[in-house]
């Protein structure tokens, strides 16, 4: 099951087709992604699950134009961006169509800008008047369950959970069509994790499409409509979240599901894990 069953009647916000990415100099070229295809409809949340070295961050970086694909096409909101140069990417990003949230908000937020300035900046770049920008900043702060008294704080004066919510608000403030989230909750404790996942779930009503990339099947299962499983650079399984978790087809997906800690783990899972490990390592 390596093809992606296109779910939407509407045109996809993101359509990746036959994506190939290689790293390294010619002689020691290593394949990071192989024949990855994925499409995401407006308002849909697609989870991309993969472990160390699976190529999940490469996928995020390629879709954001930070890494160049060696083959395949990337269509964002109807625009083929695969062959875009830096200048065209900059123009696309400025329009705020595609946004991103990374694991560590301390690195993605300017440490010298207050929350208010950080959130307003992408709007001012677009030429939105100051008063309107200020109103929108406040609206989006509420969306991520933060209060206005945080507006004049610096990122260093916020807790980890608050910081990540500011990063989410910053990604949303330009009302993008697509947000790529790479491990957005991995550095958070459980209370903050739940809160960020809750916020992401609420976004669904806006029609923004989310790509939620994580090594943690639990978090992905919590928010995704569909799940894509990346293993050694290939999307080995793509399907509805419930199907992937209840009836995983690829041996690696089965191992992932049987390995993820759940409250319902049974002793029988251990024998199954052993068998799957033997199968995958053969």
């Amino acid at each position: 099951m390596s093809t992606d069953p296109n779910p939407g009647r509407t045109a996809p916000v993101l359509a990746v087709e036959g994506l190939e990415v290689h790293y390294g100099p010619r002689r020691r070229r290593r394949r990071a992604l192989h024949d990855v295809s994925l499409s995401i409809a407006p308002g849909e949340t697609v989870g991309v699950i993969g472990e160390t070295g699976s190529g999940k961050s490469t996928l995020a970086r390629t879709v954001l134009g930070l890494v160049r694909a060696s083959a395949g096409s990337i269509v964002i909101d109807g625009e083929e961006v695969g062959a875009y140069g830096p200048r065209q990417w900059r123009a696309l990003r400025r329009r705020g169509v595609v946004q991103y949230v990374f694991q560590d908000p301390l690195r993605s937020l300017d440490p010298d800008l207050t929350v208010e300035d950080s959130l307003a900046e992408p709007l001012l770049v677009q030429g939105v008047p100051r008063t309107e920008a200020a109103a929108r900043v406040r609206a989006f702060l509420t969306r991520v369950h933060l209060t206005e008294d945080l507006l004049d704080r610096l990122p260093g004066e916020l807790s980890g959970g608050q910081r990540q919510r500011v990063a989410v608000a910053r990604a949303l403030v330009t009302e993008p069509r697509l947000v790529i989230l790479d491990e957005p909750v991995s550095a958070l404790d459980s209370a903050n994790r739940v809160q960020v996942l809750q916020i992401l779930k609420e976004l669904r009503t806006d029609g923004v499409a989310l790509v939620f990339i994580s090594h943690d099947l639990g978090s992905v299962a919590g928010v995704a409509d569909r799940i894509a499983v990346l293993y050694q650079g290939e999307a080995v399984e793509v399907g509805a979240a419930a199907d992937v978790i209840n009836t995983p087809r690829h041996p690696y997906t089965r191992l992932l599901v049987r390995s993820a800690p759940t409250l319902h783990s049974a002793p029988a899972d251990r024998a199954e894990r052993e068998a799957l490990r033997a199968l995958l390592h053969a």
């Binding site: 994790r193 099947l217 639990g218 209840n246 409250l263």
Partner: peptide, 15 residues
């Protein structure tokens, strides 16, 4: 702690 797994985890499907 339990709700975290049941609402935002694999247990959402397995329960």
């Amino acid at each position: 702690l339990i709700a975290e797994h049941e609402q935002y985890g694999l247990d959402r499907f397995l329960a």
